[in-house]
Design a protein around this nucleic acid. Structure first.
Lengths: 333, 333
DNA sequence: ATGAAAGCGCTAACAA
DNA sequence: TTGTTAGCGCTTTCAT
């Protein structure tokens, strides 16, 4: 057990060259004659040499990790997102370092500071409690931080999805199907997603000449429970409605449950539309009409972005499209 | 930008002591007079000194990470598991390094090697393609590797759940409700979970004097699609059955869908039981009776274990219990 | 109780 | 084209 690790020194000894020569061939830095190159490679292979990344990182001042800071680790949305990230990290020399802090600002602040300080050469931050100003402050080295879930800025690398259009499409679909009283269940008003999706909803309404009715809008928290409770309130409020547009699928799941408990049939009595298209959406009963967000792909795109940025390349700030997926939870009136 | 990072040297200068003294107070190693201790602490605080973990790791020969190697990152099960891991890692100085390789043996082999070599002082491995022998081989330093999803061994740290009993309880519940033709949808025969859950199913059957019928057993892959296709086959096979016991909830989700397509009502025509109790189980329609596995807790337990082991403490090899959660997907015959 | 110095494994000037 | 050497920031003998 605990055999001493093979170092560059062992390789240099076996190959009969100096350590710097070994370093040079391994990093393809500096000129090397073909024969020494081969000798070194052979020696390294024979000893199964693996460079010590700590040592390398220490001298090159790089940590070797890509950090991901997300609000939650559980839950279908961020899991898919992570999977997309891992899809690209896998083929790079970076390690994937993950942190999640329940979207609590102070904790996220500390976590990001720590990531930037000790773990990562760049991070993907999905959340909106920390704004670019906050981040600048805890990022003295100006490492790349890719933002998601925040308003688009040219000033900061970010990948956004077209929430507003997605919500617009969803709402318009309902309108096109004859619905006029469309409830909207969304998240906390302070969150950026909430705002944009609510915006799309309102735009569709106004474009169709349907007046906005504040009594039909509920602010929950993007969980199943939140959707459930909102529908309960809605039902208790005595306002007529024929459809519910939920700002994410998890709330739609809760909405289904509440509706069932009140013996409302979906979609015969109430139509429901979700947002995200998490995998469960297609297995709900009835299958959920929703707005597809390319979640996993967002992860991949974000990962490719940080890596490009870390390695000094330029990166676009893409806006990904959201698309309506029509299934069976909406009835034509 | 890119201000030079504060090092131990800066602190020593400001405190008017040597670097070794600073190191001593920071690590509480060696004797220190109270006044110098204070001086150093003050200086460190004033400069907001953060030790460079790379440098420290280099000399102490530790990587600073806890690795987690799981089959998939997406999917409700492993997400919850990860969340449990993160719950405990959060309060330790370790970073959480994640790797997922679709349960492919060769890739997992490489990933684990890499984790052990470069990223982690200990790893949590959930999977069964790599057996203890394989792991021993790629773990020359004998770092702690906690195993999940494998047969229990005293020889190796592991956390197991009582799958066999869980499956037994599920099957017996069906039997108690008068079911005699109980189909079982499970995973690949080679997997350990498959074997133990199938074992529990058979034991309950035999204990009730119901003969085992191989035509009722389907080997799928623990995905919704797998459950869906198995039920299709089952229905096509023309064998009578009144209940389906799925070896995980995701397959139960697929089973629901297939059953619906064939106009079989749940549970009036066919009863269904799942396994795991992922969060969706309670939102299915009808809500799914299933075997609750303390997924998130497993993650926490495993994390605490690696950390104990890394830090040289002893660790138990716990077996967690699985418990039947009765909901509405089973009909009393 | 404190400091000087060696060294962890590696890279990157600088010489040769 | 190659070797020598000086660090990267830290911990840890070994002196004092």
């Amino acid at each position: 057990m605990s055999k001493r690790r093979i170092t560059i020194k062992d390789v240099s000894a076996l190959a009969g060259v100096s350590v710097s020569t070994v370093s040079r061939v391994l990093n393809a830095s500096g000129p090397i004659s073909e024969e020494t190159r081969k000798a070194v490679m052979d020696a390294a292979a024979e000893l199964k040499y693996q460079p010590n990344l700590l040592a390398r990182g220490l001298v090159k001042n790089q940590l070797g990790g890509v950090g991901v800071l997300i609000p939650w680790l559980g839950g279908p949305f961020f899991c898919s997102f992570l999977e997309g990230v891992q899809d690209v990290i896998r083929d790079t020399p970076f390690r994937l370092v993950i942190s999640s802090e329940q979207a609590q600002k102070a904790r996220e602040h500390d976590a990001l500071t720590y990531l930037l300080e000790n773990d990562a050469d760049g991070v993907i931050y999905y959340g909106d409690s920390l704004r670019p100003e906050d981040i600048a402050e805890i990022n003295p080295q100006d490492k790349p931080v890719v933002l998601l879930g925040q308003p688009r800025t040219e000033a900061h690398p970010c990948v956004t999805i077209d929430d507003e259009v997605g919500a617009f499409l969803a709402t318009r679909y309902l309108l096109d199907n004859g619905h006029r009283q469309i409830a909207h269940i969304t998240g906390e008003a302070s969150q950026h997603v909430t705002e944009t999706r609510l915006g799309g909803y309102r735009r569709a309404l106004s474009q169709a000449g349907v007046p906005f009715d504040g009594r039909l809008v509920f602010h929950a928290d993007y969980t199943e429970q939140g959707g459930y409770r909102s529908v309960q309130q809605l039902l208790g409020r005595g306002v007529d409605f024929t459809a519910v547009f939920c700002s994410n699928d998890q709330m739609a799941i809760g909405a289904y449950q509440a509706l069932r408990e009140f013996n409302k049939r979906i979609p015969e009595d109430v139509s429901v539309v979700g947002f995200d298209d998490i995998s469960f959406a297609q297995y709900m009963h009835p299958t959920l009409t929703t707005v597809r967000v390319p979640i996993r792909n967002m992860g991949s795109v974000a990962a490719r972005m940080v890596i490009d940025l870390i390695e000094g390349r330029e990166a676009e700030h893409p806006t990904l499209e959201a698309e309506l997926v029509i299934r069976r939870s909406v009835k034509r009136l």
